[in-house]
Design a binder for these strands. Sequence first.
DNA 1: ACTCAAAACGGAGGATTCCTCCGCTTGGTA
DNA 2: TACCAAGCGGAGGAATCCTCCGTTTTGAGT
Lengths: 184, 184
Amino acid sequence: MRADAQRNRDKLIDAATTLFAASGTGVSLEAVARAAGVGIGTLYRHFPTKEALVEAAYRNEVTRLGEAADELLRSGPADAALAAWMERFVDYTVAKRGMVGALRAIVASGADVFAETKGELLATITRLLDAGAADGTLRTDLGPEDLMRATSAIWSIPDDDAWRENALRLLGLLMDGMRHGTAR
Amino acid sequence: MRADAQRNRDKLIDAATTLFAASGTGVSLEAVARAAGVGIGTLYRHFPTKEALVEAAYRNEVTRLGEAADELLRSGPADAALAAWMERFVDYTVAKRGMVGALRAIVASGADVFAETKGELLATITRLLDAGAADGTLRTDLGPEDLMRATSAIWSIPDDDAWRENALRLLGLLMDGMRHGTAR
DNA sequence: ACTCAAAACGGAGGATTCCTCCGCTTGGTA
DNA sequence: TACCAAGCGGAGGAATCCTCCGTTTTGAGT
């Protein structure tokens, strides 16, 4: 890749991350290109579809969430780690509100769009669930996709002052089900 | 309202319900108008926005789901009624796959779009939860909105052959949390 | 340092979709 | 029947996603 191409690619990802976090992924691609200081054609050459740009913008952030899960697993039982990780997830979303639409799309994607980002998220949850199976603190009859989907319910909470509180209560329900479910 | 206006309104709702159920609400409004045999201007006079048409198309169906809940409450304890109602919800969604996008929008709507339909859904869940509080089979620290949002997670399940099975497993997790949660 | 082909650039414009406007037609009452 | 408010339909404005193609820039090889 040529040097200027790499520079423009980085500028595009930066601009997209900022704009998406601030105003959601409804932002027009022309606005992203303008903010990055490049033409619309350049944007489309680097990211053939809007989804590709969205995925690129959030890959890093998802990776960081995965690292946080590993750290939590090292310092306590799996159920506590899972609960704490969910809480971190909530706080992360509070900080980058516009990400909600993108995350929803990532989780909901059935086929191959967002496949890598989704896979990374699933791998993180799998590590948490495996640890729960090993130390016996979590039920074992639900897969990582089940939990990821259940967690995605927080994206449908309206965006008001009580958002964080509502999200935590919802995740508390899930944690109770995961800990005290009928099948261990 | 003039007779021809009423006729056209009904034709539009019929056409919209059919097309939305078959292909989702992504269908263009011109296609709906064409299927109803009216002009696009007529469609917009009756339903000023796309959302208004979507809401009109599904109001009836939501009412019917509410009646089903009352019937279930008459024939058993609240936790069983809630579980059975959720199952009915799943089967309903299987039948009208295109409705998913609309339901997601209804549940997620924070302000006033879809307010009536959402209110009807909430009233139904409230009746189920109140019954659970009365007979002691369900925890009481979660509100109807919490449960509705948690249930909405099934909309993010990819649309394949295992959809129903996946949805039921997810709702089973919720029911376990609702029955065996820490706070009663 | 220079050449030059390949690669990247940028913006005009095609296609689709939501929605508005306005001249024509029709239903229902006097 | 005669009238006119109400309803009708479709052309077209605006926003958005994405494509095409002539122009500019880069950097490897001499």
